[in-house]
Design a protein around this nucleic acid. Structure first.
Length: 340
DNA sequence: TCTGGGGTCCTATAGCCT
DNA sequence: TCTGAGGCTATAGGACCC
């Protein structure tokens, strides 16, 4: 049986900010957008003190301000968090090279081949991270990634949860389906309408009923997940599939010139990332979100891969030309894919 | 009235080729 | 030459993740 460890930093962005501004310790902190609750943006992370007011990731900053007028609002300082993240990843990689990076504040480790008991290793990791960064984390240990991730979420903050196959019925099944990876708001509401509320409900439902509703692939994965079955491997290295940039404007744009200027700017940023990463791209996609939140994309594929600013900009503008720009534009995005 | 930005993966559909 | 059936690729959209 595999032993997989999942580590999740506690309110990571907020914790880094608290460390930097000790006077804010314990106060409700909301990090998101440019740190201005009057401008467009959503909450990236709320400190635990702010969560008590109902503030959580994904809600608009304006809403967060209403829920918690006393909160301190800070902009997302991605580079600082990435530096701390790097320190943590170095510690994790020193435990085992079998590490999968999952975004800035999470990782999986495969401890199957290690001699020490996983719990001992987990305590050691928590101690080393606290000493090096002053930050706490929550860890879950289980036979696969799916269960390890659920486990790390069970006791937060500063938790350590070990889950075996025997614990599935008692510990996992009473949880709402939403806790399963791959179940978002849409799937949750469909499942609810089918009378499936908990992971246990899903486990006893028939596979046929699931595949009928969600398709053969998603349906089967969903049902297997409820049974605690997940054979997905630890992915140590992967190549990017696409590189893009998008912005939501502070006010919707209605003049072609402004939109064109924004697209040219986005394209320059994307090309510079593309070159920095050492790739060339064959497909260009432009995304437009209109004022009513209607979101459309137009794509075009070049004859061969390219990293030429000129060629990619021309392609982007060709895509832009295929939109009916009758409504004003809230968001503009540019992405390249089919990377080589 | 509000709903970010970086991505991945999946599905449906349409056009083209054999 | 006509009519499908599959397979492949490109495109558009949607759900989801952190």
């Amino acid at each position: 049986m595999r032993r997989i460890l999942h580590i999740d930093m506690d309110a990571f962005f907020a914790a880094v900010e608290e460390r930097r501004h000790p006077n804010l310790k314990g106060r409700p902190i909301v990090i998101g957008g440019r740190g201005d609750p009057d401008s467009r943006g959503v909450v990236s992370t709320a400190s635990y003190a702010a969560r008590k007011y109902g503030v959580h990731s994904g809600i608009p900053l304006r809403t967060a301000l209403k829920l918690c007028p006393d909160a301190v609002f800070l902009p997302v300082d991605y580079r600082s968090y990435a530096r701390v993240s790097e320190e943590i990843k170095i510690i994790l990689a020193s435990v085992t090279p079998l590490m999968e990076d999952v975004g800035i504040d999470e990782a999986f480790l495969d401890l199957s081949a290690m001699d020490q008991p996983p719990e001992t290793i987990a305590r050691e990791i928590k101690k080393r991270i606290l000493e090096a960064t002053g930050l706490s984390c929550s860890i879950g240990i289980a036979p696969n990634k799916l269960l390890a991730k659920i486990a790390s979420d069970l006791q937060k903050p500063d938790g350590l949860t070990v889950l075996g196959e025997d614990d599935i019925a008692e510990t996992i099944w009473p949880l709402p389906v939403r806790k399963l990876r791959g179940v978002g708001p849409k799937t949750e509401s469909v499942l609810k309408r089918m009378g499936v509320h908990t992971i246990g409900d899903l486990a006893v439902a028939s596979v046929e009923r699931m595949t009928e509703r969600f398709g053969p692939s998603h349906g089967r994965t969903l049902h297997r997940a409820a049974l605690g079955i997940d054979e997905s491997p630890i992915i140590i290295h992967w190549e990017p599939k696409s590189i893009g940039r998008e912005t939501t404007f502070q006010r919707d744009l209605s003049h072609w010139q402004e939109i064109a200027r924004a697209l040219a700017h986005l394209t320059r940023q994307v090309v510079s990332s593309l070159k920095a990463a050492g790739y060339r791209a064959r497909t260009v996609t432009v995304k437009v979100r209109f004022s009513d939140f209607d979101t459309q994309t137009r794509a075009m594929t070049l004859d061969g891969p390219s990293d030429s600013p000129d060629l990619l900009r021309r392609a982007a503008f060709q895509c832009l030309g295929r939109f009916e720009l009758k409504k004003s534009v809230r968001l503009l995005g540019m992405r390249v894919s089919k990377l080589e």
